[in-house]
């Protein structure tokens, strides 16, 4: 890091004039509730079916705020698992793309990461604490490939419930011998940091699938802000 700075120092000095004041603090809370106009606009743009899906999602969030958390998990898991599994390459033209919940619902398609993340954000919006949820990279022994699921911890040291897009059933982690947990991370841990990493930070982070997870997060976060979801 230290060696990097010296080299790019002059450039940064110049950039500093332009960028000064452009980086602000980000909103921490997710705001997935869309306005009526916004939903209608989506309908006009993507068709009634899409609008219905969005309305259903909005209803899911709004109408189940006071259900027990296990009910919320079930509803959310089922809601998103109806979306068609598609590869990022086919859908977005990119090898790896983390869609926002809205993109995921509008497109009505995505890969395992999109399921996990959309479930995570939706549950957050429904009042589930971020501390109880972890996004977990796993290896699917059945499919023999990297996979991502959402884990729910009722207590921090217990075995979590696993929300997997391959099944509407919710099992404990230990009940899923077909999945080998690799690593988990706390979405809000990154979100909540008071100094969100700016686009200039080219820090590389090792991820299970070799992608730059941090950059994917940043990209996702920026898109969520742009779509008014943050």
């Amino acid at each position: 890091m230290v060696t990097h700075t010296r080299m790019s120092f002059i450039k940064r000095c110049l950039l500093g004039f332009l960028l000064l004041g452009l980086t602000g603090t980000s909103a921490v809370a997710t705001n997935l509730i869309l306005s009526k106009d916004r939903i209608e606009a989506i309908g006009r743009e993507y068709g009634l079916k899409t609008e219905d899906r969005v309305r259903a999602w909005q209803g899911l969030i709004k109408n189940h705020q006071h259900e027990p958390e296990l009910v919320k998990l079930k509803l959310v898991n089922r809601f998103f698992n109806r979306i068609e599994y598609m590869h990022d390459q086919d859908l977005w033209g990119k090898r790896n793309y983390w869609a926002t919940p809205l993109e995921f619902i509008i497109r009505n398609g995505g890969d395992c990461e999109d399921y996990a993340l959309s479930k995570y954000f939706t549950l957050r919006a429904m009042g589930v604490s971020a501390n109880k949820m972890r996004i977990t990279f796993v290896k699917s022994l059945k499919m023999d490939r990297a996979h991502m699921v959402l884990s729910y911890y009722e207590t921090p040291s217990e075995d979590p419930f696993v929300l997997d897009n391959t099944t509407d059933m919710i099992f404990y982690g230990t009940e899923r011998p077909d999945l080998k947990p690799i690593y988990s991370f706390n979405g809000d841990g990154v979100w909540v940091t008071d100094k969100p990493l700016s686009a200039g930070s080219n820090t590389a982070m090792p991820a299970s699938n070799g992608d730059n997870r941090m950059l994917l997060w940043i990209d996702l976060k920026q898109r969520m802000m742009a779509q008014g979801l943050l």
Partner: peptide
């Protein structure tokens, strides 16, 4: 401006570095 800018940059780098290390160590 330059010093301020560099200061911000350094803070970010430190945070990123720390986060980076924490993440990779955690894994």
């Amino acid at each position: 401006i330059s010093v301020k800018n560099f200061q911000t940059y350094l803070s970010e780098q430190l945070d990123a570095e720390a986060q980076n290390t924490a993440s990779s160590l955690g894994a």
